[in-house]
Nucleic acid binder design. Sequence first.
DNA 1: TTACAAACCAAGCGCTTGCTTGGTATTGTC
DNA 2: GACAATACCAAGCAAGCGCTTGGTTTGTAA
Lengths: 210, 210
Amino acid sequence: MEFLLNQDAILKSLVADNLVSDPSSARGRLLHEAAGLFRDKGYERTTVRDLAAAVGIQSGSLFHHFRTKEEILKAVMVETIRLNTALMQAAVDEAGTDRDKLRALVRAELESINGQTGEAMAVLVFEWRSLSEPSQAEVLELRDIYEAIWLDVLGALSRKKVLLADPFVIRRMLTGALSWTVTWYRPDGGLSLDDLTTQVMAMMGLGSST
Amino acid sequence: MEFLLNQDAILKSLVADNLVSDPSSARGRLLHEAAGLFRDKGYERTTVRDLAAAVGIQSGSLFHHFRTKEEILKAVMVETIRLNTALMQAAVDEAGTDRDKLRALVRAELESINGQTGEAMAVLVFEWRSLSEPSQAEVLELRDIYEAIWLDVLGALSRKKVLLADPFVIRRMLTGALSWTVTWYRPDGGLSLDDLTTQVMAMMGLGSST
DNA sequence: TTACAAACCAAGCGCTTGCTTGGTATTGTC
DNA sequence: GACAATACCAAGCAAGCGCTTGGTTTGTAA
């Protein structure tokens, strides 16, 4: 509960700083619908007419808010990274030991992929190539900040010799493994995200025992 | 060396059975070029004119070999799964212990993703949604055979209590983690596929020690 | 009430797309 | 060396695409 309140507080703070669109604004609603459509049909198969219909306006009116269709894709990605970076940082800050911090990161990333921002996160993974190279470069800068949080924690654990493999390799394997959950994980399948987090930690030899 | 000869023998046997196109045939060359283009630009952004130009014919002539553009995508996926299922099975058969079998599978999947069939494997992962639902169902059947090989080995290891987590979860995590290597692994980066295999096994607590 | 900008509509332009068509080389077979 | 069958070309069609345009409605503040 406090966790959810905290999430909401983080979102509000980002909205106040104009780093993320207010979900109730016209722009925010469009980005939310766009994320859903892009995930379900892919960016290329989603037409500007689809996007416009999803928010109940004419296709031409979209270009009053965004100059190009690609700008919409970029905005989805940028705002998603910003939000999740903040959520991730908060999760780390709240955790005590380094192992707890890693668990918090795994849990938070699973949440971001399979929860509220799941559609947008899937877009980030599967529609990357649809972004123009200049835009990719911009988004990559934001991604570096995000990744630094992970590598900080993994680096600390590595120095303590509790990791079974190279921290960089582990992070990349985790990126793939956690992203992939979007293709198979269903919350109603008898496996909670907490369970899944536990399994992931166990798989890396960082289970609760010992 | 024997490994490579073996790979080639498997390919030839599949070609003889008409399960995979001869890479030197017109159809085979087109599928190879298509895999490359689909991976680089995505299926939707690749036009039939791109495909035709890649093999040096007119765009209309493509439809003498395939009825639709989607049929090309499907053929790329089907033939890739067929080939890799055979390669995977051979890798398992050659290995001794169950742990060696798992290592062989990891190694073989890394090879398929980052080696010769890498382009096509990437297409399988990233262009899945571009396939129509009926085609998806067909390909899924083939994929089940492929997955059964993995689950056999993981199941055996699980019964021996050497796995740190549920075998189904492990397989899905591995699918994501190994597929994801296509986005970052470069053979000239000082890390061989054997090294990477070792890291993956170590990460799961199945390293060479003990 | 007036003034003005932001938000939107209705229509459609220019281009690209997957695919078709009617005809011409090229190939293998007896 | 006749003859299909196969492989291809040149041209283009109908539909859908991202985006533009000129004009109307809505919200806001003096």
